[in-house]
């Protein structure tokens, strides 16, 4: 697939159809690829990669890139295309300035998933297919890509490539992902246990805002929490509970727009399982208002923006009478 991606990108630039290509740039170690913009076919051939470590979701970059002059070719994985559609629904991307190339995806790995397999001193890796050969300072090991998948790719919800101008490989199907299993485990806890779980996790937060900044649903030009004039600007909390609340508020704010792309958890330097907050809300909305997947299409109205007489009022249901 890497070869096809590079060839396609070079061709799009050479033919003049696109003036820029948004893709992944190789790093020092094979696993440390950086999202990048390429302007010449030569650059593409020298530096562009498509490896099992291209986890970063490129769609959010299209907000800025699609406002520039000329057409930008974007290489998108299935989960990226959900964000791509969702951002269009929110009128954040100028579709006419984007040439979307969907890329079939076998799941992505990351440094954390390799570290979780007790590999240390990782100097590089090899393999674009089913197996990964990992080189470390202390020896080498071959593993199946499946075992090294990142947290979010383990729970991949869909392999569909949406709204692409062209597809490399094939668009797949929605998957039985078990992505709500952990949410159910949390729901099964007592309120005290759950409270302790979230306090322990969220108290690790250093408020770097990586989760917010990477999130395609968080696309405000200036977040209120960054704006000294907003009155709620908050670089670090005056009280540690604020951090905890910040995440809960953010989860509510992106509810119905979060496509469950998993970027928040991927980028968190403190390994906080933020996706579980979002998934809890997705699960609740599915139960209350019918199954809805953000970014799956252009038409369906998000449950939080739609109102019918029959809509349940969950706060009334749960208020003392029913724990559901």
């Amino acid at each position: 697939m890497q070869e096809r991606v590079i060839e396609k990108a070079a061709q799009l630039l050479e033919s003049g159809l696109c003036s820029r290509v948004l893709g992944w740039k190789k790093g020092e170690f094979f696993y440390d690829v950086t999202p990048g913009v390429f302007t010449t076919a030569q650059e593409v051939r020298n530096e562009m990669v498509f490896t099992p470590f291209c986890g970063a979701n490129l769609s959010k970059y299209l907000i800025a890139e699609s406002r520039k002059e000329g057409k930008v070719a974007a290489f998108l994985k299935p989960c990226d295309t959900y964000s791509f559609v969702q951002l269009q629904k929110e009128h954040r991307i100028r579709r006419e300035n984007v040439y979307a190339v969907g890329v079939q995806c076998e799941g992505m790995c990351d440094l954390d998933s390799l570290t979780a397999l007790n590999l240390t001193g990782i100097t590089g890796a090899e393999g674009l297919g089913e197996n990964l050969k990992v080189f470390t300072l202390y020896g080498e090991e071959t593993l199946s890509r499946k075992d090294a998948l990142s947290l979010r790719c383990n729970d991949c919800k869909s392999k569909k490539l949406l709204d692409c101008d062209e597809i490399l490989g094939e668009s797949g199907e929605e998957q039985d992902s078990h992505r709500f299993d952990q949410v159910e485990a949390l729901e099964a806890m007592t309120a005290e246990e759950r409270f302790a779980f979230w306090r322990r996790e969220l108290s690790k937060c250093i408020r770097c805002n990586a989760c917010r900044n990477v999130c395609p649903a968080c696309s405000c030009e200036k977040c209120v929490f960054d704006n000294p004039n907003s009155g709620v600007e908050n670089k670090a909390a005056a009280d540690p509970f604020e951090e905890n609340l910040f995440h809960i508020i953010r989860a509510f704010h992106v509810a119905g727009r979060c496509t469950d792309c998993g970027e928040c958890t991927r980028v968190c330097p403190q390994h906080i399982p933020l996706h579980l907050l979002n998934r809890k809300l997705i699960k609740d909305m599915n139960q209350l208002y019918g199954t809805y997947q953000a970014g799956a299409d252009f038409e369906t109205k998000p449950p939080m923006l739609d109102f019918t007489q029959e809509d349940p009022e969950p706060s009334i249901i749960t208020n003392g009478r029913d724990s559901g």
Binding site: T34, G36, V37, A56, Y61, I206, N209, A210, N213, P269
Partner: peptide, 13 residues
């Protein structure tokens, strides 16, 4: 700097 998220993780760690 093009793809930097401005997240500040690098400065905090």
């Amino acid at each position: 700097s093009r793809s930097c998220l401005g997240c500040g993780s690098c400065t905090f760690v």
